[in-house]
Amino acid sequence: MNASAAHDDTFEAEALPQMDAVYRFALRLSKSEDRAQDLTQETFLRAYQNWEKYTQGTKVKSWLFTICRNLFLRTEERGKRHDEIVTGVADTDPRQISREATVFMAVRDRDPEGHFWREMVDARVLEAIDDLPDEFREAVILSDLEGLPYQEVAEIVDVPVGTVKSRLFRGRRILQEALYEYAVEEGIIGEPTAARIRNRGEASK
């Protein structure tokens, strides 16, 4: 077996099995099937061309995500300018955000144990994640959907760990609020003003 055969074999064994993961990441990132397809194809092409630069032993999924994200940002910049609105958030103390538990305060009287979270349909949660602003979205995707540790998320997104924390925590709070609103709309949890109709929310368990 020569060097290039080994090159192809490791690529096949390590990179190719991540295709679904990369495709889903591209979908969540771009919110478009067409773009996700282009991104996935381009990611694997780049990955193959640069496979010798990939350090064996590091997480291949994170490496592919990094390539995919960079491609995504490049095409983003061509289109629209990056959201300036959220840039200030990076400097917020992440611990401050943990305290903004508004949904917890709102449902304390009706569902203090948060049973309604479990009533959420996966598709609706993913939709709410897709609706998050870019910076928060990628932190939530990588941490909560992919289960990556803060350090790995920081490397993919190329920001300090503290920034990952503040984006992730703020992202989760926004997500909680969106899902809570949805739960109220759908009658999964009672209206905030009518705390006593809690039976409606509890009955479905």
């Binding site: 538990a101 144990e113 948060g114 949660v125 289960g147 989760r172 909680q176």
Partner: peptide, 16 residues
Amino acid sequence: FEEAFQEAIAKVEQHE
């Protein structure tokens, strides 16, 4: 409460 949220999100499956 927060744990219930985390667990609910962690079990979300992406089917694509």
